[in-house]
Every structure is written in structure tokens, then in C-alpha cells.
Amino acid sequence: MIEEPYRWVEAIANRREYIEAQLAPGSPIAALGCRDGILFVTLGQTRQKIFEIYDRIAMGAIGHPGDIERLRMAAIELASTEGFTRSATDVSLRRLVHYSLSPAMKSAFEQVYGAPYLARMLFAEVGDQPNEDLFLRVEYDGEIATNGATYAQARQDFAALSGTEQSRELMETFLATQHTSDATLEAALNSALDAWSIGHMTLQTGDTKKTPEHAAVRKHRQEQLANAGIEAALLERGGNRAIRYRSLPDKELRPLIRD
């Protein structure tokens, strides 16, 4: 198979299709940079999807729990040894993802006789100022998307992760109009829940390129909040403590929800 380039391309295409199908039902995650820090939000009932990686770095992931676990461990090991041998300020998300995780995921994906990672991850690193926040999305094939400004696109203060590209794009479209980096935690939470609902609805309805109506989003959000718990974490911006990660329990967030 390897000797025949065409077969290899075909194998990779099949593999991509397979992974996309596996990831498609993954419940969305939204990460929003706000005044207080970076807020990660998702709704769920079962396993944890938002994790602490290092002092200023958090990760949200969808995919196979076993693969998420291996990648999470690898990220924590890399960050911890770097932080130990040098210093916590030398641990950078950019290096972690670009130099370590992405190449590893790419080679696992392209070695067609081995198993690829069934996972899609969203990393964020909180900065001292909102414009220093970094968001990186890493795909199962090692592809990296960033929130940084490019020639074609302005900088974004948020990032989204979902089962399908379409669902993620609708979440991003919504957040681009609704969210600003100077939002309060309360405002950011409500934008995140709306974005989550849009992403979740799109996953259920399937083939649509249109953002759902506002009323429908609200209804869906209420229904889901009644049945599922809010999983959230904040990477705090201020404060003099080195460790910025704090998980926000459901009951602390419920009073902040505005209908």
C-alpha cells in the first residue's frame, strides 16, 4: 500500500472520513476571553471534557476518551517537565502545540498501519491582557488553527470546538458578532451558552448553513440546561497566584444565567 502513492492517498481519505464520522456527535465546547480571564463552557452529563494542563493553560476535547487521555497526559508531562527544569514562564502553549503535539498527531494520522488519535482539541493560554490570550485548535491530523490575526482575518477573542465543521463555523459566526473581550464573566457565560446551543442544534439538525432563530436557540438552551449540567472552567487573568485554572461548579453559574 505504501509503495503505491494513489492507494496511500485513498487510505488517508478513508481514514479522514471515518474519523470525521466518529467525532460528529461530539458536544460543542466554547472558550471565551473576557475581562476576568478565559472561560471554557460545555454542557454534559457524563465524562469531563475540560482539563487543566498547566498554570495558564487549559484544554477542552472531544473524541475517544482513551485518545484524549493519552494526549492530555502527553501535554501535562511536557508542560510539567519544562516548568520544572526551567520555569513556569517558559512553558508556552505555542511551543507545546506546534513542536510537540501537532507533529505527533500528524504522524499517527498518516501512518496507515497504526491507529490515529480520535480527538479534536481546543487549547487556551491566558495572558496578562486580553489581546495576549492565545487559542489553538488542534485537529486529529495535526492541523492547527489559531485566533491570531492574519492578512485575511482579524484577531478573535474566542474559539469553538464541535463535532462538525459546520457546527463550529456557526458558533464562531455567532461569537464574532456577540462577544467582545471586555465582556464580564456573566455576559461571557451567556454568550457561551448561546453559542453552545447553536452548535448543538446544528449537530442535531444536520445540513444547514443558517444560524437558528434567536427564539429557537433560547428554547433549546432552556431544555438542555434542564437536563444537563454545566461544565465550566476559568483561567483567571488577574491575581498573584501562579495557578490560574479554576473549575466553576454548576451551582455557582446557574444564578448568572439570563433568559
Binding site: 493519552r70 497526559m73 502527553a74 508531562e77 511536557l78 510539567s80 513542536y99 507533529p103 504522524s107 499517527a108
Partner: peptide, 17 residues
Amino acid sequence: RSPVAFDQNFSGAAGDF
């Protein structure tokens, strides 16, 4: 070896720091 743990028998509970 890649810097990322590629141990297929990997277990998160395996070792302490």
C-alpha cells in the same frame, strides 16, 4: 523517539512526578 509519549500500553496511573 518523539517527545510525546507514544507508549501504546500507556497508563495515566503509571508513575508519579
